[in-house]
Amino acid sequence: MRSVLPVLTVVAVIVALWYAACVPMNIKGVLTEAERAGAAVQPEGAGARRDLPALRLAINNGFAVPATWAQDRPRLPAPHQVAAELWDTTAMKKITSKRSLVYHGWVTLSATLLGFAIGTGLGILLAVGIVHSRVMDMSVMPWAIVSQTIPIIALAPMIIVVLYSIGVQGILPKAVISAYLSFFPVVVGMVKGLRSPDAMQLDLLRTYNAGKAQGFWKLRLPASIPYLFASLKIGIAASLVGAIVGELPTGAVAGLGARLLAGSYYGQTVQIWAALFAAAILAAVLVGLLGLLQRLVLTRMGMA
């Protein structure tokens, strides 16, 4: 709790810096608009201003500074503009509307969750196999580890198109990308967790003459839960990125990735920022929920 004040301070500083950055980022555009509207601008003509430092321009034309926080299509929208856009497109629109971020968020979220469920399920199964079979461990595990070091997200556009060409559309192609992105972290984390009991704990079960299955359910699985949750948090964040990137290559019309892409096509910076924050909030909520679940489960198991 003693971190609340420092955290709030840091956030406040970031917001202040953001507002300050809007001035140099947007001043040239603002001045061009003002000049067109007939205001006296120092110096005159966009050409004369191009190579001047933005800060000089802002000092010379103090009247234009407030306008840098209220432009229609700024290079950098001010925080309140993004907040207003977020509010407009979530609370003020019907959630079935194509302009509602809730609608787009749901499109992305559903693919994320489906893919995450598939990836996690398969990941846990493979981890169990790896822990119980030496061949699988030696054959597959090195590849699972290597997969963590390469940008497998580069496969995403191809998966979308290939699945499309064999008639699979909609949520599934994105879910496949989400699934394989969450799959490998879960495999690696879960194997680590299932192997976490030390020799003494394993020996104890041996003195009870416990079977392999008993050892799994009574020792390995419970011991792996903290590791599982740690990789689930990584996995869900990766799943969300996968779903968003999966929306880019086909020019999808719905989803947060589609909003980002459309915004960048039409120079709708406020829309991009709103979509970005929606994605960030979604990620934070998902990771936060998993964190909460982790606390509940571990408390219940007496491990936290």
């Binding site: 964040a237 960048s264 920022w273 970005l276």
Partner: peptide, 13 residues
């Protein structure tokens, strides 16, 4: 933990 790749369109701009 956030999907920072999403900043790409802004930074490209």
């Amino acid at each position: 933990a956030l999907p920072i790749v999403g900043t790409a369109p802004i930074l490209v701009m």
